[in-house]
Amino acid sequence: MTSYDLSHPIESGMQTYPGDPPVRVEPHADFTTEGYRVSALSMGTHAGTHVDAPSHTQSEGATLGAYPIETFRFDARLADVRLGARAPITVADLPGEPDADLLVLHTGWDRHWGTDRYRDHPFLTRAAAAWCADHGFHVATDALSVDPTPSPNSRPEEPDGFAAHDALLGAGRLVYENLTGLDRLPSRFTLHAYPLAVDADGAPVRAVAVIDD
């Protein structure tokens, strides 16, 4: 078996969704004064590579603690949706057969991580998100969000709010965002993406793809 880490490293100043808390990883104790090291970590629940629980956008939605641990191990299918900036991902762009637990959207936008361009990623239409939910897919993406992210390049015809999130999370599906390195993967693989043990609206994950050689 071969394993691939699909997670962005957590580090101070890393890119976050506009308005989310900044990420800080700072020394708290060091060898000079205390004789050991401890770092202080401050971040939001949706920083870096992370999973969204339904309570992220649904007032009565489940938190991560409602899901058994085995939920976060997926039979994953990769969907090649490498489209242009701020392009809508429609039902026609998705695979026709729902033969996996998780649909992983390969937008290629992780190459823009850490830049303003990263906010101009392709996004799921509400209809495409609803199709995923109706066919039993959880969804992951290598972009900042499954919905359009506000930026100076936003267009008037783009949907407002969190239509794709609502369609998926409202159906009890999970959403993973900010994966990276999907270009190394075959069309089918197993994804292990376990959140921190926090009963919240989301949490950072270490996302690891496992491929049978």
Rank of each mutant, 00 (worst) to 15 (best):
A53K: 00
H56I: 03
G108K: 02
W113K: 06
V205F: 07
L78Y: 02
L103M: 05
G136M: 02
R155S: 09
H28M: 10
L124E: 00
M14Q: 08
A85M: 07
A100K: 00
T45F: 03
P88F: 08
V51P: 02
T125M: 09
E26T: 15
R206W: 10
G61D: 00
E157W: 10
H46S: 13
S187T: 15
A66R: 07
P156G: 09
H192G: 11
T190P: 04
T190C: 07
L103E: 02
A29C: 10
G136N: 03
G61V: 06
L78K: 13
E177D: 14
T90D: 14
W131P: 10
S3A: 15
P18V: 12
P156W: 05
F74Y: 14
R86K: 13
G65V: 00
S154A: 15
I211K: 02
L64I: 05
A197V: 03
G108E: 06
L102T: 04
A171G: 12
T16G: 09
G61M: 04
P152K: 04
P156A: 14
D183N: 10
V210R: 14
F162L: 10
E60R: 07
V139T: 08
V175A: 08
G13M: 12
R37H: 14
D110Y: 11
V146M: 05
M43G: 05
H135R: 14
L182M: 11
P204T: 05
P27M: 09
T33N: 07
V210S: 12
R126N: 08
D160H: 12
F74A: 01
L185Y: 04
V104C: 08
A163Q: 13
D93G: 06
S55E: 00
L83Y: 06
E157Y: 04
L6D: 07
D134E: 15
F137R: 02
I69T: 13
T190L: 11
L168T: 01
W113Q: 06
T149D: 09
V104G: 02
R37Y: 05
M1H: 07
D134W: 00
V205L: 06
S12Q: 02
F74N: 02
L64S: 00
A87T: 12
D183Q: 13
H28G: 15
G172T: 02
R117I: 09
T33W: 03
A143C: 12
R111V: 14
T32E: 14
L182G: 10
P156L: 15
